[in-house]
Amino acid sequence: MKTIVLLSDARNPVSGRQQLSRLEAQAIGLAAGLCEKPRGLHAGSGEDGVSAGLGHGLAGLDIIDLPATDDPLPALAGFIAKAMGGAGAPELILCGRRGEGGEETGLVPYRLAETLGLPILADAVAIRAGEIAGTLVVDQAMAKGARRRVTIKLPAIVTVHSLAPPPMPFAFGRMRRGEIRHHEPLERLGLPDTAARSDASAEERPHRARPKLMRQSGTASGGPNLHVGPEPDEAARLILDYLEANGIRRYGSS
């Protein structure tokens, strides 16, 4: 199944150089499991960062040359819409849960889905082709290790969760063999940029680290919780009652 992986303009936090975001590298890993020749798609300027995607398993990379300040969405939507109209249309579009470099709100996949009229699924940790042709089975990450297995009709957009398998290791030789095509942004599709509206009162400034709240334990029940030398059966009962009272687990029929 033909797969496109959207790549954003991530930066190394230490050096500030362009690099491939880890989530997108994981997305490439998932794509490579489905598709023999997954291709990357990036709209922006510079290819130093995204070309690493070739080293992580992409067969080719399409770059839409755009100034870094432009909203990439219309160009991406235009490119994908054109590709979907042609032969060998992409069936699956994978992206990280949240791209880097722009507003970093994670809205691009959703806006893309809206523009192209495609269904979207979030937080995939595993994907495989469905039994019926043209379907995809996606395992979505949920709390406490649960997974939601969704079968979806293709084409679709799927975002990848950080719990997905680690990316394929980077190989320079693969990157050297990969092919990069540059494109001019031809068609632009899509909604007006909503981000612009929020910019009016927005103030961008250097980040100030703010501590998170401390996670500390509390003894939930107020009574004396120290039991010295109870019978093992009594101890077991105390433990299970504590677990059930605090909603950790429910055992038995209740």
Partner: peptide
């Protein structure tokens, strides 16, 4: 660990483990 715990039981863990398994079996 006893000080840190919300429920602290001073007892041999080796004895409590089978008791827990037994009690869980009963409850289920």
């Amino acid at each position: 660990m006893i000080e840190r715990a919300g429920l602290a039981i001073v007892q041999d863990a080796q004895l409590v483990m089978p008791a827990l398994v037994k009690l869980l079996a009963e409850r289920q």
